[in-house]
């Protein structure tokens, strides 16, 4: 039995993303952010995007290029404090920002990927972050209903992929990537290393290949992936 080959070239992958799409982006700070796929999305120019990402990177990096280019309508995020440009756009009403507690964002995505409609939690009860959300009582405890999240596309960054789309991440570059891999209609992964099927130890794969639709090998890593000089 031979597994399908899902490798493709970057422009063919990103050109599928239409105006108005909802796009999940992996990454927490620099590690795990698919900078090259994001740059291609900037070139492609799809507009009115809803972006779901843990953070907004830093000013002048990653997501910020989509913001600068006016492609983002709404950002679903947990913390955007390192990107003053994103904060300005939010404050001036140029983009809508939905904040979510970090682990709840992760769990909403995981639920979406697992075919569930939402999660029940007591996190953020009584705070500004749960205004307007519906509540239910479970075993005598009041819980907030947090709807599951799915996206049209997920753009991920892997350290190593095989041709079938089995993915492995390194260190803190894992973060939201394996969760988003399960929660989008089309999943595109960029990878630093591409190996033949069979080369990855099956015990060391983080994202099973069936979740992934397309694999793009990074020819080189741009400056964005490097240690941030502060």
């Amino acid at each position: 039995m031979k597994l399908p080959n899902k490798t493709t070239i970057i422009d063919k992958a990103i050109v599928q993303i239409p105006d108005g799409a909802t796009v999940m982006l992996g990454g927490f700070g620099v590690p795990g952010t698919p900078f090259t796929l994001i740059e291609e999305l900037v070139q492609h120019g799809a507009k009115n995007l809803t972006i779901i990402k843990n953070d907004a990177n830093e000013t002048g990096m990653g997501v910020d290029h989509l913001l600068e280019n006016g492609q983002v309508k709404k950002l679903v995020s947990t913390h955007i404090g390192l990107n003053t440009h994103a904060v300005d756009l939010m404050n001036s009403g140029k983009i809508e920002v939905e904040f979510c507690p970090q682990g709840i964002l992760a769990e909403r995505i995981r639920a979406g990927g697992a075919g569930l409609q939402g999660i029940l939690t007591d996190i953020a009860i009584g705070t500004d972050l749960q205004d307007g959300k519906s509540r239910v009582e479970i075993k005598g405890k009041i819980c907030i209903v947090e709807p599951a999240l799915r996206a049209d596309f997920a753009l991920l960054h892997a350290d190593t992929a095989d041709h079938f789309g089995n993915l492995a991440y390194v260190a803190t570059a894992r973060n939201f990537n394996p969760l988003m891999a399960m929660a989008a209609e089309t999943v595109i992964a960029e990878t630093e290393h591409l190996v033949p099927v069979g080369a990855l130890n099956p015990n060391h794969i983080h994202t099973p290949g069936p979740f992934v639709d397309q694999v793009v090998l990074l020819e080189k890593l741009s400056e964005a992936y490097n240690v941030v000089q502060r």
Binding site: F28, V30, T172, R174, F176, L179
Partner: peptide, 22 residues
């Protein structure tokens, strides 16, 4: 690829484990 949640670069120790956000 190795930061803490504040963005500082950190070192691992013997027995370090990485996990997803969930």
């Amino acid at each position: 690829n190795l930061i803490d949640a504040g963005g500082a670069y950190v070192s691992p120790v013997p027995g370090t484990c990485y996990m997803d956000s969930s």
